[in-house]
């Protein structure tokens, strides 16, 4: 009887240990996936920043070109005598 109780106790401990290891494995899986998510977010931030920087550069060049055109048109329209006569 006592031997049977000891066996059941050992079995219970074994089951508990196995469950504990399963839980640990699950937690490690979850933490790994969360880390992957974090990596993805960091990479995404970097790529988004670079894309935004390139867009900013494009916008700057467009602005400059527009300003140049505005100035040129302004100087041309300031001398209407060129177009008359």
């Amino acid at each position: 009887m006592a031997r049977a109780g000891g066996i059941t106790n050992a079995v219970n401990v074994g089951i508990a240990v196995q469950a504990d290891w399963e839980n640990r494995e699950f937690i490690s899986h979850i933490s790994l996936n969360v880390r992957r998510l974090f990596d993805f977010l960091v990479q995404f931030e970097a790529t988004t920043k670079s894309k935004l920087a390139s867009l900013n550069g494009k916008l700057d060049t467009l602005e400059r070109r527009l300003e140049l055109l505005e100035v040129q048109v302004g100087t041309a329209s300031a001398n209407p005598s060129l177009f008359t006569n």
Binding site: T48, K51, L52, L55, K58, L59, L62, R65, L66, L69, Q72, V73, A76
Partner: peptide, 21 residues
Amino acid sequence: ISKTNAFSEADIRINCLKQRF
């Protein structure tokens, strides 16, 4: 972000204006 059609369109418009000028 990667929708650069508007930029290219603006670039083409500016080039057109420049040529006309």
